[in-house]
Computed example of a mutant assay.
Amino acid sequence: MANINIQFIRMNTSENLEMFILKKLEKVTKFYQNLIDINVYIKYENSSENKGRICEVEMKQSGLHLFASANENDYQIAVTNAIDQVKRQLDKHKAA
């Protein structure tokens, strides 16, 4: 089982969002059991250029380091998009 670390940056911790993240990651770790570390960073940036709800996901596997980031108007959408991006990267490496 992967070591999962969730950090909330420039915002308060949200148990609901943390449970949502863990549920999404459960689907990934079910198919990729050789993941070592998963770091999820939830950030808020007040900027007129961006949407402001940011999720960054970093996954480490033996010899492999993957990263994805999503900036959306809603944290759940940002989490879903970032995790989907990393899952696609894992699928590419699995197929190679």
Rank of each mutant, 00 (worst) to 15 (best):
M1T: 10
A2W: 06
N5Q: 02
Q7F: 00
F8L: 01
F8E: 07
R10I: 06
N12F: 03
T13P: 11
S14M: 02
E15Y: 12
L17A: 10
M19Y: 02
M19W: 05
L22R: 15
L22P: 01
L25G: 02
K30H: 12
F31V: 03
Q33R: 12
D37I: 02
D37M: 01
D37G: 00
N39W: 00
V40F: 03
V40L: 00
I42L: 13
K43C: 02
S47M: 07
S47K: 14
N50G: 05
K51V: 09
G52T: 08
I54K: 10
I54F: 12
C55Q: 04
E56D: 08
V57L: 00
V57M: 08
E58Q: 12
M59A: 13
K60E: 08
Q61S: 11
G63L: 00
F67A: 06
A68M: 08
N71T: 11
N71V: 06
E72R: 14
E72K: 15
N73S: 09
D74E: 15
I77W: 01
A78M: 04
V79L: 09
T80N: 15
A82E: 04
I83K: 14
Q85V: 01
Q85N: 12
Q85W: 03
V86A: 11
K87C: 03
R88Q: 12
D91V: 13
K92N: 14
K92F: 14
H93R: 13
H93F: 15
H93Y: 15
A95D: 13
A95W: 08
A95L: 10
A96I: 15
